[in-house]
Simulated scan of single mutants.
Amino acid sequence: MSGRVSLEAVDDDRVFPFQIEGEAVRGRLVRLGPAVDEILSAHAYPDPVANLLGETCALAALVGSNLKFEGRLIVQAQGNGPVRYVVCDYDTAGSLRGYCRFDPEEVAGLVAGFQRPGARALLGDGLFMMTVDQGPDMDRYQGVTAIEGETLALCAEQ
């Protein structure tokens, strides 16, 4: 057996933890298919907005799948740019919900000047938040940082 896996044989909507033997390297990969397709097809998102929401969903799935309790992880960003906010809610049962609010005319104007605008260009000045909700009997925990960089992953590192 060659050890190769056909991509067609891998189910979509999966998180794959990995570790490199003999090294202090561990991580997770996420593959979203039907779940993110359903979220994105529910609204007529322009490509840059859909990309931002897709990134938010992937980030929520990556971080949320690592939670060791039953609850939710909410990843959101809000700003004064063409995209007013983006939010994705991941629960430990594996469900994912996401939504964006944006101004179509402002997004169209921004796209004219950029090949592929990122988080900072789309959201403008604002905040990135990750909220851990462990249920009604526990306090929520929230991390908040300024939107910096052109990916939400850079914000999450802060």
Rank of each mutant, 00 (worst) to 15 (best):
L123M: 05
Y99K: 10
F18M: 06
A112V: 10
T151I: 12
L122C: 10
S95C: 06
L110F: 02
S65N: 02
T151Q: 07
D12N: 09
R14K: 11
C88G: 01
D47K: 11
A146M: 07
A146I: 13
R14E: 06
E148M: 14
M1S: 15
S95G: 02
E157Y: 05
V25I: 11
A108E: 11
L62C: 06
F18R: 10
A119L: 11
I147V: 08
M138W: 05
M130D: 01
E23T: 04
V87T: 12
S6E: 07
P17K: 03
S2T: 15
A93F: 02
L127A: 15
F102Y: 04
V10M: 13
R26V: 09
D137E: 13
Q142F: 08
T56E: 02
L127S: 15
I147Y: 04
L96N: 02
Y45M: 05
G143N: 14
E21A: 12
I20Y: 01
G79L: 00
I147Q: 00
G135Y: 06
P48W: 00
V63R: 15
V83H: 00
R140P: 15
V5G: 06
P82M: 01
T151F: 02
A9R: 14
P46F: 04
N66L: 08
D47F: 02
G135N: 13
P48C: 05
V63Y: 13
G109N: 10
D12G: 11
M129A: 15
Y85R: 06
P104W: 02
A50G: 02
G113W: 04
V49E: 01
V83C: 03
T145E: 07
A77E: 08
Q134I: 12
R14N: 15
R26Y: 07
M1N: 14
A146E: 12
E38R: 15
L152G: 08
C155D: 01
T151G: 08
Y85P: 07
L110W: 06
Q76S: 14
F114C: 06
R31W: 09
G109R: 08
A50K: 14
G109A: 07
Q134C: 13
Q158A: 15
L29G: 07
F69K: 03
E70Y: 12
G98N: 10
C155F: 08
T92V: 12
L52I: 03
Y90T: 03
S95N: 13
A35L: 05
E150V: 10
R84D: 13
M138Q: 14
E150C: 09
A60E: 07
D91H: 05
P104E: 10
G135T: 12
G124P: 08
Y45F: 11
T92F: 00
Q115M: 08
R84H: 11
N66E: 14
V36R: 03
R140F: 13
Q76K: 14
A112C: 09
N66V: 04
V107S: 01
Q134G: 14
D125G: 11
H43P: 01
M130L: 04
Y141A: 05
D133K: 15
Q19P: 00
Q158E: 12
A108W: 07
V5R: 15
G33Q: 10
E55V: 04
Q76G: 05
Q19G: 14
A112G: 09
A61F: 10
P117L: 05
S2Q: 14
T145S: 10
D103L: 04
C57Q: 05
G79D: 03
Q158G: 13
A108V: 11
Y45D: 08
G22W: 03
L123P: 09
V49D: 02
V86H: 00
Q115G: 07
